[in-house]
Every structure is written in C-alpha cells, then in structure tokens.
C-alpha cells in the first residue's frame, strides 16, 4: 500500500508534506536519546517488513506494521516511519518521493493512534497485552487503508469505492498483522518488557 508519484494533486501532496514535517518535528521533540537503539531496530523492521509479500489471488499485499511500530515506539513512531518510508522509496521504488508526505501520513497517523491506544488499554497482564497488541496491529492496517482511500478520493476517485477495495484487499494483511503483533508483543512482554515502555512507565511513577 503505497501511493505512487503523480497520483495525488499537487496541493494535497504539498499539504501532506507540511503536515508530515510538523509531525516529524513533534516526534523529534519527544525523542529520548536512550531509545535510539530501539528506534533503529524498529525502523529497520518496518523498512524490511514491506518486502514480506502475501500472495492474494492475482496480486499480492505486503505487511505494513504501523500498529506494531506505534505500540513499540509511541509518539516517536512517526519519525521511524518517515525514515523507513524514505529509504523504501529510494531503494525499493515503493511510492514516489513526491508522495512521501502522503505515504508518511498514511502509515504514521495510524501508528500514533495505535501507540496511544495500546499504552492506554494494555493493562498489566501478559494476556491483555497480547490481546490489545494484536487488536491494535489490525487496527493500524484498517486506519491506513482508510487514509489511503481518503488520499485517493482527493485525486478524484470515489471514497467509498476505493475504501471498499483497499479494505477488502487488506483483510488478510489485517489478520496476519494481528497475529504477528500479538505474538511479538506477548513475547516482548515476557522477555524484555522495557522495550514496551513498561519499566519506563514504572520509573516515571
């Protein structure tokens, strides 16, 4: 799910760039330097995840991971996603550079929402963490598909039509990401809860 060059009207592309830059600034302000290695690892995973293709009838869809990135990084997820998408567009030709702003919003906003929801709802048990993690991972894909439909609607397509196609095409991704997200988060909660911000939260309290 990437928007290619020249699909969006110039005004939308430029506007989304501005919003992305603003989000990047906010993301940088919340950056904790102790988290840099974690950001590096999560960004790398996000960067590579888009290469994992799931065959789906005549086409194929790939993992997106906005929900998981958001759950792991919180507000810094936006930075991680912009960096990952930038390198994807440079090295993989996934989505154009002019559409980078729109693509960043498409992945970054769901990541922020999912991160927020995960931190709010995760509870304190491993089970609740895994459950909320998997829900949030699925939700990330859903939101990304909706934002994709919104962006394409500004390019003259009908919102409902594109939204329907995007959602149907990403149902398998949603399922797979929910499984992956739930597994990763329950695993991390067991072996390294500070990666999920659990011990950091305890320190703050």
């Amino acid at each position: 799910m990437h928007i290619a060059d020249g699909v969006l009207p110039t005004a939308v592309a430029a506007g989304s760039y501005i919003v992305t830059l603003a989000g990047l600034g906010l993301s940088l302000r919340t950056l904790d330097q102790r988290e840099l290695p974690k950001i590096a690892v999560v960004s790398s995973s996000f960067f590579v995840a888009s290469l994992i293709h799931l065959p789906l009838g005549p086409t194929s869809v790939h993992l997106l991971l906005p929900g998981l990135v958001g759950a792991l990084l919180g507000p810094t997820a936006f930075l991680s996603i912009v960096v990952g998408l930038f390198l994807q567009s440079l090295l993989f030709q996934f989505g154009g550079l002019t559409a980078l702003g729109a693509n960043s919003l498409m992945m970054g906003l769901p990541a922020l929402v999912c991160g927020f929801l995960y931190r709010r709802l995760r509870g304190t048990s491993k089970k609740s963490n895994a459950l909320v993690g998997s829900l949030v991972s699925g939700l990330g894909v859903l939101l990304a598909a909706l934002i994709l439909a919104f962006f394409l609607a500004t390019g003259g397509e009908s919102f409902m039509g594109v939204a329907k196609i995007a959602l149907v095409a990403h149902i398998p991704v949603m399922v797979v990401e929910a499984l992956v997200g739930g597994f990763v988060i329950s695993f991390l909660y067991q072996v390294k809860p500070e990666l999920l911000g659990v011990t950091l939260a305890r320190e703050n309290v």
């Binding site: 330097q33 590096a40 960004s43 960067f47 590579v48 390198l87 090295l91």
Partner: peptide, 14 residues
Amino acid sequence: AGIGYILGLCGVAA
C-alpha cells in the same frame, strides 16, 4: 543498504 542507513542515522543521532 536500507538497514545500514537506518542504523547509521541512529548512530549519528546518538
């Protein structure tokens, strides 16, 4: 290359 870029950028930031 991409992973290297990301790690390098984070290294510079650190």
